[in-house]
Design a protein around this nucleic acid. Structure first.
Lengths: 209, 209, 209, 209
DNA sequence: CATGAATGAGCCTTCATTCAT
DNA sequence: TATGAATGAAGGCTCATTCAT
């Protein structure tokens, strides 16, 4: 993920390390607030206050409220991509696939709030930022596509490209559902159970195709 | 779905058939607008105008803007429940399950906009309405649970109750993904292909569990 | 001055006569406030309050604060044009010229505040409105050009077109100076004296050219 | 122009020559900016940046934004006074008057932007600074009054004191109009033509009074 | 002296909601 | 019932000014 493809949120402040610090504060505060009341009901004043500084200072680090949302989304994707990329060891074994699924699901579990926000508020992003986010989403799908591809190459499974694309999307959505259907799953399943069952179902599904 | 469990949106108007008419107009206008700009960006003035009457008249049929959102959500669920209930013939065959999945997916395809809205804007509902909507969502899950249950009873498949619950949720989510991941699916798949592949994967998945 | 060449300030209100009434109130209030503190220091809340209604109502009749300024400028020009057009009787006599000057100067005297505002705040208008205002200013110059032209035709004076243009501008500016140099003139001159002296100077000036 | 009658803009800095340097930078930057966007739209940050230093430094040399405007106005008047005083050789001839007019007009032509600013933004000065500026304006008028007076004494023309006052103001305004009516004059006249015609008109006007 | 991050009062504008007609 | 003008709380954002480094 090169710097070049990242959208840049303009600041008036020059000190790079300060920018980094303040943005972390903004993101943390925003995740909390957006989760509680959603993007629209959260006010910039509240965000600033929750982040621990004044409204004026907030606007030294962003240009519009939408920038905050973008900051949050970008932050999530970066974390996801790092985590997922780590496992992908190109072996092409089912074990590797299982591990990737597990890591992805565990990641979502550790960032349930962030994911929930992303899936409910993405549409509020300005056009350009929205497209950037969708591109990131596709990258995430690609990671799984690659892993599945390796499994096909190594002969572990047999799938057409279209089936791989669908299956990869399928996985991504299934993982996300752990976040956005919290109310349906969290009282009946521990994340480990969820992972196990979903993995089993998914593998059986694709092995028989 | 008895009247009792439905939330009632208060009106100042008495004529029941007029209420019905106006609400249809409100819903139709709102779906169009919410799809375009989302719940928050759509104004009550715009809704009234798109519905073909004045802002004053709009407020004769709702009490708050959130009522409009509830009206839309309720309308969608009612349609879904009617359609899904129709198929469920209790035979307990895989064919029946396949048919139910197909009908559900086709329904979503015919109401992509409505589902997208519901998926993205539910969180903006006031607490009470939100809970009502979640209850509806669970009812939908129940429909599939029942069908799966029948299949287990008839010996076609073997699943624990927990597995049935998960599988049913799985199906509901997978169907919705046709709406909320339009951008990922619609250019690569026709709805028929999507149904076929998803059904195959799902069945292989559960048959092997 | 046809309706077509007038810029239209959009309203949310439909009742034309109400629009007319409210705009008069807005203009009156704004002239008072702009004179006191200038366009930038006057707030929209103050304008609304001075006009006798709420900020919400103000914005039913304008779209931006700049619209208010435009409304004021347009109002002044309309009044000037009507008044000046009245005298121009095409006789081509020096008497007619004198009368036109007198009427123009008297008009400015009766609208000193409005003229002062216009000459100090025009630059704050958005581009399009600014051009409209400059066009109006040129129309005003044209009125005097026409009168001077008639005098040339009738043989009363001898001036080239360029000289006429300069002289007309000269007159317009000299009149305006009665407003924007209030502090220099008003304590030493009555408007009648001012008119008499300026007219004498102007006529001597052009008669000798 | 003694130091006493000059308003003093307070600084935190002691080094007089540094103050002088920084102020020149401030004035130059401000003229550019005020011309582009006016006093209110230009921000102190922009002024500092255009001047080549930080906002903090700017505030070491001024106390309020209005100080900047005062600095600009004062700078312009100082330049004008120096230039005009130079010609006034007390001879009381028409030639001298002509020369003064010419120099004044040429000065304005070489400082069109500055004059435009002064003409449009003076009203934004705080009361005290405003009065200082008006006093300067009267001094400028006085210069021409003196010259005209000399002409009367030497018998070249016959004018009452009131007429002299009016004529002097007249001249000052006529000159300024070359700046603030740029849009009306600059495309039709070269400054030399403008000077010649205006001078002719003015002289004919007063010679006949 | 110079810097620039921090502050918060205050501005313009929107929009859900009401109510007299 | 239907209308639409009126309301004002509240939101996003700016910018002059300060002060610790």
């Amino acid at each position: 993920m090169s710097k070049k493809e990242q959208l840049v949120v303009q600041t008036s402040v020059k000190d790079e390390s300060l920018i980094e610090l303040r943005r972390q504060q903004i993101i943390e505060a925003s995740v909390k607030l957006f989760k509680e009341k959603g993007f629209y009901r959260a006010t910039t004043r509240e965000i600033a206050k929750a982040a621990g500084f004044s409204i004026g200072t907030l606007y030294e680090y962003i240009r519009t409220k939408e920038d905050v949302l973008y900051l949050v989304c970008d932050h999530i994707y970066t974390k996801v991509m790092v985590r997922i990329s780590e496992i992908s060891s190109q072996s092409g074994t089912i074990e590797e696939l299982k591990e990737a699924i597990k890591q992805y699901f565990l990641l979502i579990d550790s960032m349930v709030d962030e994911f929930t926000i992303m899936y409910q508020e993405t549409k509020s992003l300005p056009k350009e930022a929205m497209q950037y986010v969708l591109r990131k989403e596709l990258e995430m799908v690609s990671l799984f596509e690659k892993i599945l591809h390796n499994c096909v190459k190594s002969g572990e499974i047999t799938l057409s490209d279209k089936e791989i694309y669908l299956a990869a999307n399928h996985l991504v959505v299934q993982g996300q559902s752990w976040a956005f259907r919290k109310w349906a799953f969290h009282k009946d399943f521990a994340i480990e159970d969820f992972i196990e069952l979903q993995t089993k179902m998914f593998l059986s599904g694709i092995l028989r195709l």
